[in-house]
């Protein structure tokens, strides 16, 4: 390190399952410049101080959703969180809350991936069309009904923010429910009845207590809390009116 170089301390939660019985903190001192993101900070540690530090990252521009971490206890994308906002104080970096730690800052995403599959995150066509019949047309209003909820990058910050997911990991959770709503609210989609089974289930929307922290930490302004609470209404309507519906509604 050059003489007179400003430095900042980063406290990292370490966990190597082959050696450690439980996670523990380790402090690194790194050179500081005011254009450095927290991600660049941990990259410096890996490149110069301890090559065994593990973390996920890819795009460095809040698009890929890989580099989510708890930064001073707040679920954040480390690529768009800057060290200058903490300097000269020490910054604490930990794996995302509410997920099992695989290694250092890497969490096990398996549970989330299963949930993502369970919501059938693709358009199930309302009516089959042949190529010669052309594309499915949509009005700006129809696009507006779901567009916001299609911006999710699966970064899991909302799960780390959700106290109810923390208490019950079976809860489908904010991102998956927002994406579920994205497809249910799409005028081209006909899969709503199937997806509502999940919304209505004991793992569904009623686990949410409208805390709203998920929407606050979302780096893409998806507002999952809005999607979840719209579906509480949808689910309640479905619950009370299912006997009146022509096909008896969802099971």
């Amino acid at each position: 390190m050059a003489e007179g170089q400003k430095t900042i301390e980063i406290e990292v939660l370490r966990y190597h399952p082959e050696n450690d019985t439980e996670p523990h903190a380790q402090v690194f001192e790194i050179p500081f410049t005011d254009d450095m993101s927290v991600l660049q900070g941990v990259q410096y540690i890996k490149d110069h101080l301890d090559g065994s530090l593990s973390f996920r990252w890819s795009c460095r521009m809040a698009i890929c959703g890989s580099c989510g971490m708890m930064i001073n206890g707040v679920p954040s994308l480390s690529c768009q969180t800057f060290l200058r906002d903490y300097y000269p104080a020490r910054v604490r970096v930990e794996a995302l809350a509410h997920f099992p730690i695989e290694r250092d800052l890497v969490v096990n995403m398996e549970g989330f991936i299963e949930k993502l599959e369970s919501i059938q995150p693709y358009i199930i066509p309302r009516e089959a069309r042949t190529l010669s019949e052309g594309e499915y047309l949509q009005t700006p209003e129809q696009l507006g009904a779901y567009e916001q909820f299609s911006s999710c990058i699966n970064c899991l910050l909302c799960y780390a923010a959700c106290p109810q997911f923390g208490l019950n990991s079976r809860f489908v959770g904010p991102a998956a429910l927002a994406l579920l709503h994205r497809y249910n609210a799409d005028s081209r989609d006909g899969g709503k009845a199937e997806r509502m089974e999940l919304v209505n289930s004991e793992d569904g929307v009623f686990n949410c207590t409208a805390v709203g922290y998920c929407s606050e930490v979302c780096p893409k302004h998806v507002d999952p809390a809005n999607a979840v609470n719209q579906n509480k209404t949808n689910s309640a309507i479905d619950y009370f009116l299912r006997f009146l519906a022509p096909k008896g509604g969802a099971r």
Binding site: G204, S235, F240, A250
Partner: peptide, 16 residues
């Protein structure tokens, strides 16, 4: 394949 999902009775209490 898909586990059978139990419908939550929460809407009653949520509506009240």
């Amino acid at each position: 394949m898909k586990p059978t999902l139990k419908r939550s009775n929460a809407p009653i209490f949520w509506a009240l």
